[in-house]
C-alpha cells in the first residue's frame, strides 16, 4: 500500500511539473492512471530486486529477467509490455487533453526525468549515456 501511495505521489509529481500548462483530468487519463496504479503493486518488488529499471525514454525495461522467479516471469513480461503501452497512452492523452498532441515528446521527456528523480534508493535507472546504475 505504501509503495502504491508513493507511486501515485511520483505520478502526481510528474504531472505537477507541467501542471501550469497541462490538464490531465480526463476520463482516459484517469483510466490509464488507475490501471497503472493497480499494476504497480505487481511491478514494485521487481524494481527493488533490480529486475526492472526506469529507462531514459520514460518506459520500464526488464533489464535482468533472470532476477524474476520463473513462475512470475511471463506475467512480469506481459505487465511490462502493458505498462509501457499505458505510459505511451498517458503521455499522448495528456498532450491531447491540452489540445496540443505535438507536446507528447516533451511530456515523455519530462516524465522520464521525473520517474528517475523520484525512484527509490536501490532501484535501477538509466543514465543519459544508456548505462544502468543503482540509485
Amino acid at each position: 500500500m505504501k509503495t502504491i501511495l508513493l507511486w501515485l505521489l511520483l505520478l502526481a509529481s510528474g504531472v505537477a511539473l507541467a501542471q501550469s500548462n497541462l490538464e490531465i483530468n480526463t476520463p482516459a487519463v484517469a483510466q490509464i492512471k488507475s490501471a497503472m496504479a493497480v499494476r504497480h503493486g505487481q511491478l514494485a518488488p521487481h524494481y527493488a530486486s533490480g529486475a526492472l529499471g526506469l529507462a531514459q525514454d520514460a518506459s520500464v525495461q526488464l533489464r535482468d529477467p533472470n532476477a524474476v522467479p520463473l513462475a512470475q516471469r511471463a506475467a512480469v513480461q506481459a505487465a511490462v509490455a502493458a505498462e509501457n503501452n499505458d505510459r505511451t497512452a498517458l503521455y499522448r492523452e495528456i498532450a491531447k487533453a491540452n489540445g496540443n498532441p505535438s507536446w507528447e515528446t516533451d511530456i515523455r521527456s519530462t516524465f522520464a526525468q521525473r520517474w528517475i528523480d523520484k525512484a527509490q534508493p536501490g532501484w535501477w535507472v538509466q543514465t543519459a549515456q544508456g548505462a544502468w546504475q543503482k540509485k
Binding site: L70, R73, A74, A78
Partner: peptide, 9 residues
C-alpha cells in the same frame, strides 16, 4: 521443476 520458455511457463 519448472521451465520458462518465453512466453510459456
Amino acid at each position: 521443476g519448472e521451465v520458462y520458455w518465453q512466453p510459456w511457463y
